[in-house]
Nucleic acid binder design. Structure first.
Lengths: 241, 241
DNA sequence: CGCAGGTTTGAGGTAGATCAATGTCAGTGG
DNA sequence: CCACTGACATTGATCTACCTCAAACCTGCG
């Protein structure tokens, strides 16, 4: 027997939004049906191939997005090409930096993904009139700030082994929006991306993977598929006591 | 001839607030005189010795603060004592993490400082009723997020030399709330703090200082007093082209 | 099959850590 | 006025974790 989800004025909600992930936990969740309709008029869904760029460092921001599916990496590059991933965003995160013209970072799909784009101006206008929306964005900004600071400790003070274990733990706790901690998953990032996230080289990342595998902290199949027999043990390897 | 500052209802504003730094650029600037009065009823100024702790990692947040004078460092420590500074806050920054019970970081005065404390509950209540206040806090959170991500690039990808130069440039552009870039200043942090900020040891920091001094990128007197003859050159050493 | 992109493994080099000694300077007290 | 102290900073010698360079190894896929 199927119970119908009880949404207020479900029929007033745009068709594409009705089953949308971003309405549960995402920014759209705080909007009224009318506001959702207005935003929806100007928004469009897009499929992104792995590696597709959403916005580039230094470009003018014309769109914000919601991540519907997939993982998006936020990177910074230096003039000589050295690169650092400064954040990973998972569905149903909001993607964008409000109140600024030019993007300080590059955002690109780490996996095959799906996003919902809407013009900066439309949302900016909506934010001004909707305290709940600003509150929601504020909370996400604070969450990202907490995560960034956690990662600063990892980058500045942890060993290569701890860094890789920390990364695995991060993925285990973020890939699935439903479950807060899963033990079998596919890595959304290549070794090169992982290296850029951890401030290491791909060779060092690879060696640490091998080491963790040999010590039975993780199992790996096909490079990307990972299982963690004992999450507590992984956490200890990550230096999170 | 002296021109009187034109504040609306200046006489309605609490005496201690009238000349306060935090009203110009700080969060109090967005409040009405009535709101300022209410907040002021519950707030108190405090002088902090260098090293004094404002709040500890894991403690329950009961107060927020505004920094009136001085520099406050935000740190994270690992179980074995390894430490990382994850942010520096300068007057007139707001100090606190809204919407959360327990502090994930330690905040302590890096220099002799002055703060204005007010109860978490009073401000939280005020935020709910005042969209402008939430907007202000949102903007500061985004600013801190930008800074955290800039620093992640520094921690993950820069050499010791670039890290130290980046730190000096950061200080040059932040110590004085009035001037965005000054060439002569006192370091608000000890070598140990600088090392914790840069993810290095004090010995490496010291060696890089010496190297920068010998290459005439900076001059140093009394360990703390620094002058920068050519800011562009310092920026190049920092890897910011 | 054979090639291409990603990954692992190996050998050797180096930036930064570690350990230990020395230097500087502001108090403090004789 | 000068010796003593303690906190902080510099310098030196050595070690090592991670990087660099190079080769080998998958694993799909035309």
């Amino acid at each position: 027997m199927e119970v119908r989800r009880q949404d207020i004025h479900n029929s007033d909600i745009p068709v594409v939004c009705r089953a949308c992930e971003a309405r549960h936990g995402g920014v759209c969740g705080v909007l009224t049906p009318e506001q959702l309709c207005e935003l929806n008029k100007h928004s469009s869904r897009h499929r992104l191939d792995s590696g597709a760029e959403v916005i580039g460092q230094g470009e003018t921001v014309v769109n914000y997005s919601n991540i519907i599916r997939g993982v998006v990496k936020l990177t910074k590059v230096m003039a000589d090409g050295r690169q650092q991933i400064v954040g990973l965003q998972f569905a149903p995160d909001f993607l964008g930096r409000p109140f600024i013209e030019e993007s300080a970072i590059t955002a690109e799909a780490a996996t095959e993904s799906e996003v919902c784009n809407f013009p900066r101006k439309v949302l900016d206008r909506l934010v001004k009139r909707t305290p709940e929306l600003e509150h929601k964005l504020h909370r996400q900004a604070l969450k990202e700030l907490d995560e960034a600071r956690d990662w600063m400790l990892t980058l500045g003070r942890k060993t290569a082994q701890e860094k890789v274990a920390s990364f695995l733990y991060l993925i285990a706790t973020h890939v699935d929006p439903e479950n807060i901690e899963i033990t079998v998953f596919d890595l959304p990032l290549s070794r090169a991306d992982i290296a850029d996230f951890l401030g290491l080289t791909i060779e060092t990342v690879s060696r640490q993977f091998t080491k963790l595998r040999k010590e039975n902290v993780i199992r790996i199949e096909n490079n990307r598929h990972v299982s963690v027999p004992d999450m507590e043990r992984l956490m200890r390897y990550a230096g999170n006591d």
